[in-house]
Design a binder for these strands. Structure first.
Lengths: 347, 347
DNA sequence: CTGTTAGCGCGTTCAT
DNA sequence: ATGAACGCGCTAACAG
């Protein structure tokens, strides 16, 4: 029923091994033979059996990409960039490597489960995107998993999260702390002193680092850090909306709102508009990430641009061995402050 | 080095077959035996070999998802929804099915290539999202590929594109034509008569259907369809921006712009703003899709909401056999007109 | 440059 | 309910 390598070999009058060599292009094969084999492949409509190939070679052409939520452009952009670099040399059988995208939803259990499934698939590499959960037990379990993956020959690249020492994983880390600091410095420079902060979920590195940067900026200028002005919530629009209403209730005197990311910032803007608060006239708003829609917000959103595309692409290249690993296995990627219309002088 | 089924069997004092049965849970196994096996699995940190399993079983737990661009929320939302329904019964070895996301970039060659790669992986199912290219040769090639996939036991679901007769593929189709028609009717009802249209790429079904709806609405009211007011371009912001500037140049008297989708509409809004044209005071703008950011545009974008999430989820369930196929293998999904602030009475 | 041989690790008969 | 044996389709030595 299904045509196999042997069928092709028979038709091309060669041995199965030769067909395999032609398909994988790793060994020298006479041009005439190659031609004959390729013709047979074509005539029989032969398609290589991936699982059989992976079994025999003890490695597959699958690359895992772990994301919190692929519907979120933050992850979509990185995942797309990783995927775009997966092709080219090193892939088996003239084909390209394929991306297995795993939505963890931020759940540690799912993160581990997916890593196990990828290990089961004998994935060639795994790219883990986005911030990490700070829970020590989970970090220990994750570290063990990463070590086992490495031992099984799977390259692991962390993209946008802190390094994990002794796991063999390469880390491309975003300087969330520095970005957060520059953002708040910008606001303070505009005269803001009551700066509210809508942070992400409490237990994530991204949340903590951005918040630390914010606080560092406040401290540097001796501006008091009022705990009542910091709210935590998920990285979504609603969180920004609700938190902003709450902040307005707590302290009508705030003159600026810094959001965990651009999506949250958009929610904050919506809440301010609904309350008739002008931006940036009465309250300035800032985000983080610089997602594509942020420049089209009205007013355009001041934010910290993260090079998601290039970072993802680099992670992809490292994953497939097309780029060298950074020195020490760690590279820090800077964000760039983008000053736009949503921030202005304090009222 | 790497631990296999046989190792587990030895440690649990059973045969490899029994271990396999426990892991797959398909055959009755004594509770005590099962317990012993699971303990051995745990102690040895055993991870099933996916390729070997897939080879022996002649099917894998991989589900392919073809998208134009995973970084685009339109596709990200659908892909995420598909993926969220992949788990549950039917998957092998207690694990979940995994999603292989393939970015075609809208290229027909890549579409075919990825389908071949998925066939090679013996994918359990394939979901193809987004509009189709109308090129007859490509459609023929695609049809052949889909037929071969079906023959190989891979279920194929089309999500957001027209049916492909005689391929065995289930189609969940968006009513782009109806949506486009209602949108333009809405504009005409507001008194607009010079309605510009920024369409997507020429050779795509989505583009054509939305445009046909637009023209049907014009025709129904006897409004002339001026070819100079229709421009084609990619589905991105820049296309909307550039096209709007060009349209303004061609006819400063236009009072409304309909865009191929929300992203294009955002670009159109930006161009109008840059030219000092008020929305909707001087020119109304409408989009299509109702992506998450559209409600936060200023003014909020009038658009046609497509239930991307639920459509993707349904496609996923059908793909894994958790939902029945629709009658005749075809279901049409309606869009909903969302009237918001970006459209108003004609100047 | 090409053919021969021997597994890769598991699922699945067929027995018991 | 469990075990033994075979083969899935391919790659990787090893010869030649």
């Amino acid at each position: 029923m299904t045509v196999t390598l042997a069928d092709v070999a028979e038709r091309a009058q060669v041995s199965p091994a030769t067909v395999s060599r032609v398909l994988n292009g790793n060994y020298p094969v006479a041009a005439a033979t190659r031609e004959r084999v390729l013709r047979a492949v074509d005539e029989l409509d032969y398609v290589l059996n991936g699982p059989a190939s992976a079994l025999a070679a003890a490695t597959s052409d699958l690359v895992g990409i772990l994301v919190n939520d692929i519907a979120d452009p933050f992850f979509g952009i990185m995942a797309g960039a990783v995927q775009s670099e997966l092709g080219g040399p090193g892939a088996r059988a003239g084909g390209e490597r394929m991306a297995v995208v795993c939505n963890t939803g931020g759940s540690p259990e799912r993160e581990l489960t997916y890593l196990t499934l990828l290990q089961r698939q004998r994935a060639a590499a795994v790219v883990i995107t986005g911030g990490a959960l700070e829970n020590p037990e989970h970090l220990a379990a994750l570290g063990g998993k990463l070590r086992r993956l490495r031992d099984a020959g799977t390259r692991v690249v962390l993209c946008g999260r802190p390094p994990m020492p002794d796991t063999g994983a390469v880390a491309l880390t975003f300087d969330n702390r520095g970005g957060g600091q520059r953002l708040t410095e910008h606001l303070l420079g505009l005269g803001h002193r009551r700066v509210a902060y809508i942070a992400g979920p409490e237990d994530r590195t991204t949340t903590r680092h951005r918040l630390e940067g914010h606080r560092a900026a406040l401290a540097a200028l001796g501006v008091p850090d009022d705990p009542a002005l910091v709210l935590h919530g998920p990285y979504d629009r609603r969180s920004g909306y609700d938190a902003t209403l709450e902040l307005l209730r707590r302290d009508p005197g705030i003159t600026a709102v810094v959001a965990a990311n651009d999506t949250v910032a958009l929610g904050a803007c919506a809440a301010l508009r609904d309350r008739g608060v002008t931006i940036p006239g009465a309250v300035s708003v800032a985000g983080f990430d610089d997602l594509p829609f942020s420049v089209d917000a009205v007013p355009a959103l001041t934010t910290v641009r993260l090079p998601l595309q290039s970072a993802g692409a680099r992670a992809g290249r490292i994953a497939v061995g097309r780029d060298p690993e950074p020195p020490g296995g760690i590279a820090t990627i800077q964000g760039e402050l983008m000053v736009r219309g949503s921030t202005g002088a304090a009222a």
